[in-house]
Design a protein around this nucleic acid. Structure first.
Length: 828
RNA sequence: GCCGAUGUGGCGGAAUUGGCAGACGCACCGCACUCAAAAUGCGGCGGAUAACCUCCAUGCCGGUUCGACUCCGGCCAUCGGCACCA
């Protein structure tokens, strides 16, 4: 039997068990049809250097769940890996001269892996993946080609962010408030050929299936819903004088008779055609050029002044034949709808303000009940309901019906149709960067765009490239990389030199974990069918939209091509709150960072984990407190001093609940109440903070119980209590629990023990204290049998001398007995 | 501006289905142990009050109810997301 030291030497203990667990490989899992599976996943980190407290929180939460569910008898898949491609690696390479992004990344991975092991997280490390490894990105490229083959990847010109000072292209993430993140220079726009995924083809499914996600926070679903941004309306065609036509999207077809002007986005392809040979041409070209150069931020800022210019051209309202002037304005976005807006100033606030500013006419077509709206007297647009007026055949129709009627009418006349529009845009995945998965495409003069054949994957990143900011992908300057043989005709070809957005790499990693070393296929069929979907996903809310939406898109696509059995990737989602210090997010610039390393070396991993789980429920932000950490450390020491002396002294089997009395019965009860509380808090509610509280209360009770002379106690009760305590503590403080478990005479790992079930008869009480209220105010308490009837309870309470005294001279109106809780006497 | 979350002691938080507000922990105070300190153990700890079995108290105002931290209506504050979406 192991000897337990009288003091808690966390360093020795943690090191010893981490080594043993690795040697015995206790966290390795394989498919096992005899056991129910559970896939517990935390968002894999970007290997930025070292773990921060947010990581510690994320992985501690996941670890408690994984360990708990394993003890509950599930076959738990709990893997870890690295979201290892991305800009910081490249920036570090530029900053540190000749350090290669791969070296920087793998060094960080080694550091962070060691830190995760020091925290004692129960990962199956045999499944570790890194997205920058050719064995992984081979499949990133393969999936790109699958999307391409199914018509969901396409190339198109699009504007990118350009920093004139760094002479480089910037990803959206690198643009902060319209300036370059590194040098603060104003960012410009440049047009480049780029690859896109047609996520918009899945917009309706991505929206509809949100309702299937019962285990997701409402907040996240609402954010995705808004992001997808479905709106119903119509596209209506306005012929332009002198040929051409403008198709406009509107959600208010009932107001088409009120159109008094039409506005095009500056980039709208028709603009140049309309202004040709007109006096306005010079001014408008200048305006368009200026707007194009604006950054996304400046362009879409609500504060930006709305500027419109008259083109001189007109179009015809197809419903009433009216002549409508055409304008160009900065607030109209080319990407949304059809890139133009019909102006209905009487019934749209923005149009109203714009019309007043430029003295455009206002025409009322929806009349609410009450006095007639007069354009010249209106101070704001009328956007409510009403009857249609000045609307030809639709006059008198309630506008809600008018929406449908106008659409039907347009469809009959061939002037338009009902349309559903989404705000969601296609996903731009091209990055003019080195440290990412190369897009597996070859351009050939004869064959055009040619996908790299599967057999030639991966298209490997060349190791020796220059990282000077030249304005192009560094790959473009690597002739060995660029020059390739066309797989179609065998002639000379050029490789695509852009790499893929790293969100692509993280959109399928949770599938790859099921077969991480499969070199033949992206994953095995039996593995994917066994493990999918992820039962519990845990991570920060900052990924509520992009990562989670892209992953849902991928899952639906992969389901469509029969590669995965599920249509949604994550059954349950837990979004953990931030870790704050002094009320603010920890950051270097604020100087309020607490490093996990320091905490682990000063107090041990068990203390760090316990504090982070105890300090707040997982969804809420957590305020870091050094004194709170101290408190958790003291608690673990208390556990040590309580249990360590019991080594070799515990005896007895299962206590017999029926025969226990007095302090033994109370202790036995506390043990089972604690099992119940911890099980519910961890398993049903994810309230780890209250689970820890329950364990603390049990320790307090156990300490008192141990004060009772040994001769007055039933030994089996102490044994049950001590062992239960360790098992309940195991998911939270795995090292200490393991050490004490072995020290008290066990040879198998505590982490392989079954989770205890509480005995209802042990939890049950014979008598309970109920509260006596008079008019809702507490006046007294009384001990009553648990199974007392409400009638008997009322009788008993009303006969109490103190109650009778309080009721003296008052009129009892009503008595409300609530069994097991309280009784309220209503008097006048 | 729109959408969402949160608001409880000196602090982090608890109260699971409308039923004892403040569990558990921190800080603080007192006591024990000690030559002393630390550590540890024991006790106290929302406010008012001389005191109570009294009164007040869960951001503010109002409502429903025998009973409201919890439900409803209206405000305020803080945080987060979206932000000219036609």
């Amino acid at each position: 039997m192991a000897v337990l030291k009288d003091r808690y030497y966390f360093g020795e203990i943690e090191e010893k068990w981490q080594k043993r667990w690795a040697e015995e490989d206790i966290y390795r899992v394989a498919e096992d049809s005899r056991k129910p599976k559970y896939y517990c996943l935390e968002m894999f980190p970007y290997p930025s250097g070292k773990l921060h407290m947010g990581h510690v929180r994320n992985y501690s939460i996941g670890d408690v769940l994984a360990r708990y569910l394993t003890m509950k008898g599930y076959n738990v898949l709990h893997p870890m890996g690295w979201d290892a491609f991305g800009l910081p690696a490249e920036n570090a390479a530029i900053k540190h001269g000749n350090m290669h992004p791969a070296v920087w990344t793998y060094e960080n991975i080694n550091t962070m892996r060691a830190q995760l092991k020091q925290l004692g997280i129960s990962y199956d490390w045999s499944r570790e993946i890194a997205t920058c490894h050719p064995g992984y990105y081979r499949w990133t490229q393969w999936l790109f080609l699958q999307l391409y083959k199914h018509g969901l990847a396409y190339k198109k010109k699009a504007a990118v962010n350009w920093c004139p000072s760094c002479a480089t292209v910037l990803a959206n993430e690198q643009v902060k408030e319209g300036t370059c993140e590194r040098c603060k220079t104003g960012v410009e726009k440049r047009e480049l050929d780029q690859w896109f995924f047609s996520i918009t083809k899945y917009a309706d499914r991505l929206l509809e299936d949100l309702s299937l996600l019962k285990g997701w926070p409402e907040k996240v679903k609402i954010m995705q819903e808004n992001w997808i941004g479905r709106s119903e309306g119509a596209e209506i065609v306005f012929p332009v004088e002198g040929g051409d036509a403008i198709t406009v999207f509107t959600t208010r077809p009932d107001t088409v008779f009120g159109v008094t002007y039409m506005v095009l986005a500056p980039e709208h392809p028709l603009v140049e055609k309309l202004i040709q040979d007109r006096p306005q041409a010079v001014e408008i070209r200048e305006f368009v050029k200026n707007v194009r150069n604006l950054s996304e931020i400046d362009r879409t800022s609500t504060e930006a002044e709305k500027i419109g210019l008259y083109t001189g051209a007109h179009c015809i309202n197809p419903l009433n034949g009216e002549r409508v002037p055409i304008l160009v304005a900065n607030y109209v976005l080319l990407e949304y709808g059809t890139g133009c807006v019909m102006g209905v100033p009487a019934h749209d606030q923005r149009d109203f303000e714009f019309a007043r500013k430029y003295d455009l006419s206002i025409k009322v077509v929806i009349q609410p009940e009450g006095p007639d709206l007069k354009p010249e007297k209106m101070t704001e647009a009328y956007t409510g309901e009403g009857s249609m007026v000045n609307s030809g055949p639709f006059n008198g129709l309630p506008n809600k019906e008018g929406i449908k009627a106008v659409i039907r009418y347009c469809e009959e006349k061939g002037a338009g149709k009902g349309v559903i529009n989404f705000r969601l845009r296609d996903w731009l995945i091209s990055r003019q960067r080195y440290w990412g998965a190369p897009i597996p495409i070859i351009y050939c003069e004869k064959c055009g765009i040619v996908p790299v054949p599967d057999a030639d994957l991966p298209v490997e990143l060349p190791m020796s490239v220059e990282f000077k900011p030249t304005g192009r992908s560094p790959l473009a300057d690597s002739p060995e990389f660029v020059n390739a043989v066309c797989p179609g005709c065998g002639g000379p070809g050029r490789r695509e030199t852009d790499t893929m957005d790293t969100f692509m790499c993280s959109s399928f990693y949770y599938f790859r974990y099921t077969s991480p070393r499969n070199t033949e296929r992206v994953w095995g069929e039996s593995e994917i069918n066994y493990w999918q979907p992820v039962d519990q996903y845990i991570g920060g809310v900052e990924h509520a939209i992009l990562h989670l939406l892209y992953s849902r898109f991928f899952t639906k696509f992969l389901n469509d091509i029969n590669l995965v059995p599920n249509t949604e990737p994550f059954t349950n989602l837990l979004t953990q709150g931030m870790v704050l210090k002094d009320g603010a997010k920890m950051s270097k610039s604020k100087g309020n960072v607490v490093s996990p390393e320091d905490i682990v070396s000063a107090y041990g991993a068990d203390t760090a984990r316990l504090f982070i789980l105890f300090a707040a429920p997982p969804e809420r932000d957590l305020e870091w407190s050094d004194q709170g950490v101290e408190g958790c450390y003291r608690f673990l020491n208390r556990v040590w001093r309580l249990v360590a002396p019991m080594a070799g002294k515990l005896s007895g089997g299962q206590p017999d609940t029926d025969k226990l009395v007095g302090v033994d019965r109370e202790m036995h009860r506390l043990t089972h109440v604690t099992i119940k509380r911890v099980t519910e808090d961890v398993g049903n509610r994810f309230n780890f903070n209250t689970a820890v509280s329950a364990i603390m209360e049990m320790v307090n009770g156990l300490n008192q119980y141990r004060e009772v002379p040994e001769t007055d106690r039933e030994p089996s009760v102490l044994k049950e209590a001590a062992e239960t305590l360790l098992v309940l503590l195991a998911p939270f403080a795995p090292h200490m629990a393991e050490e004490l478990w072995h020290g008290t005479g066990h040879s198998q790992s505590i982490h392989l023990q079954p989770w205890p079930a509480y005995r209802p008869d042990a939890v049950a009480e014979e008598e309970v204290t109920i509260v006596i209220q008079i008019n809702g105010k507490i006046k007294d308490r009384i001990l009553v049998p648990v199974d007392i009837t409400p009638d008997r309870m009322s009788e008993l309470v009303l006969s109490q001398p103190r109650v009778r005294q309080l009721l003296e001279g008052r009129n009892v109106v009503k008595v409300i007995p609530v069994p097991g809780k309280l009784i309220n006497i209503v008097v006048k």
